[in-house]
Design a protein around this nucleic acid. Structure first.
Lengths: 150, 150
DNA sequence: TATTGTTATACTCTATAACTATA
DNA sequence: TATAGTTATAGAGTATAACAATA
């Protein structure tokens, strides 16, 4: 008789358990700063580039332009980003951090650092190095750079 | 000047990238069988126990009873599970697999096996063992058995 | 009163596709 | 026609809390 594999027999299951726990806790932390994880990603990208059109942001974050539109709406409401019209092409506009948004990024980055330390700090140096190495290997060998972050 | 960590500087980020990719592909596979990943988890648990009350299922899957109620509704519509009233305690009822549900579990388990092989097969035996070991260590040391699977 | 389960409501995240304005 | 962006719609996944029935 064939044996049926269980939920816990798959690496994908445990990966999801750990990933969800890490993300869930991080979401709770950034919620204290009034933003979601998806919003944090937008803010962090804008922090480096100063300004970016929504279509580029969609490519960078690997989501649809509709998703970016919605995220941008919320960040505008929260006054963390600004919209600037383009003069050359009136269809386009740029998104950039507001002063408040720029001030918030280091705070959020610190929370991300804390969260990582909290979770992966229980590993030995060897384990942590191995994890990073293996995750990177998976990303490279499976070509996950093009995978959406849903 | 303090340097601000980026999205990709955290293990949590890469964990999320890989986990999302694995789950996304698995979701696509089971969608071909007409179920979602959350529904697969319900079916797989019921496969072993024959029958279970929603409150136990909620504990097992670490979601709220409301979430189980919704999942059960969908699985009933799809005729993959059955509801049976309890005779001792009329507030309770048991959920169990229908014949169709029981037949589907091995098919779904095979898809989970395939998905795992597809993703983690690119790792060497040593890497794969290390990944399993490290994920297990994280679950144990961080006490993630109690974390919800959202 | 406490418990089981359902239902109502709400939110995040995402997608697809129709639509508007501009090129 | 093609492109940039918005909006409408939908659906998965989840939570909280109000509720009904029963214990």
């Amino acid at each position: 008789m064939p044996s049926i594999s269980g939920l816990t027999d798959h690496d994908g299951y445990w990966l999801r358990v750990v990933s969800n726990a890490v993300s869930h806790d991080f979401a709770r932390k950034v919620a204290g700063e009034g933003v979601t994880v998806a919003e944090w990603a937008v803010l962090r990208v804008l922090y480096d580039v100063d300004q970016m059109v929504p279509s580029s942001l969609a490519r960078e974050l690997r989501v649809t332009k509709g998703a970016v539109s919605k995220l941008a709406d919320r960040l505008l409401e929260k006054k963390l980003i600004k919209r600037t019209e383009s003069r050359e092409d009136l269809r386009m506009h740029s998104l950039s951090l507001s002063k408040a948004g720029r001030q918030k990024v280091p705070v959020l980055a610190k929370l991300a650092d804390d969260n990582d330390a909290e979770y992966f700090g229980v590993l030995t140096t060897e384990e942590r190095d191995a994890l990073s190495r293996i995750l990177t290997a998976l990303v490279e060998r499976r070509g996950l750079s093009d995978v959406p972050m849903d």
